[in-house]
Design a protein around this nucleic acid. Structure first.
Lengths: 136, 136
DNA sequence: TTAAATGCAAATAATTTGCAGCATA
DNA sequence: TATGCTGCAAATTATTTGCATTTAA
């Protein structure tokens, strides 16, 4: 898409076919996908796309402020193209990660000397679908 | 230590030599160590202690509410024997994780249907030592 | 004596690295 | 043409699993 190419170029990222596809895949979902999920989603249409490229592109997006990286489990990184401060909820039953509506947390006062570059708040528990399942 | 043994037993954990040592190692540090770090710290005095035991004991402590698990980077889990709600700060330069003084943020209002079991807030940036280093 | 805890080794999963080929400014 | 992007394969790191042995109620 022409639009995405410009968008990337404006932020100092050389737009390649792969980078455009990866950014669009990330931006068009609310699922907070991992690198592997994005690779799996794009692979059918881009058979030669390598995981390496997906990993490095996602890191590049984070560096340039176009995505945020979420470390919610110890075992995989998830990404979100929505970089506005907002809350995440991870369901321990189904593993889904969702955005929570409502206001972002007020960043806490930090003691002198600390330079916070980003603040993340997340809650873990059961999502509506899974907690409903338990009751039935 | 006799004291720790009782403490564990009261929470339904069979106190073994290994479990006592692991819990004491975790409780006596503010470093938010990973399983491997704890293993490394105890290994000199307990040459047969296996990583497997450290991993499973830490998970047991989390289940029983005696420790919390921190997923701050995508690549490793860190543990904290302080289970009171408090803030964590991770320095992106030196990788250290520290507790932040001050009260934890009030848990946000969750939409109906969500059952939050734990809420974590953490900030990432530069710690006092590392930000001082940049200035000099 | 019997169930639970431990420890070794091998397996797994996500991610990173080295390097050669390719594409594009 | 020269720089940077891509992709394969191999390496690395944290963690988990299978299973036999040991420990302790």
């Amino acid at each position: 898409m022409k639009h995405t190419a410009e968008f990337l170029r404006e932020r100092g990222i050389q737009p390649s076919q792969q980078r455009i596809a990866i950014y669009e895949a990330l931006a068009s979902t609310k699922a907070h996908p991992s690198a592997d999920l994005i690779h799996g989603a794009l692979a059918p249409g881009m058979p030669t796309l390598s995981r390496t490229t997906v990993y490095s592109t996602l890191e590049l997006l984070v560096e340039r402020g176009l995505a945020q990286r979420l470390a919610l489990t110890g075992s995989e990184l998830r990404y979100d193209a929505d970089v506005s401060p907002h809350l995440h909820f991870r369901c321990r039953a189904c593993g889904s990660v969702s955005d929570l509506p409502g206001q972002a947390p007020s960043p806490p006062e930090l003691p002198a000397g600390y330079l916070a570059e980003r603040v993340q708040l997340y809650a873990e528990g059961l999502c509506p679908a899974c907690s409903a399942g338990l009751r039935s």
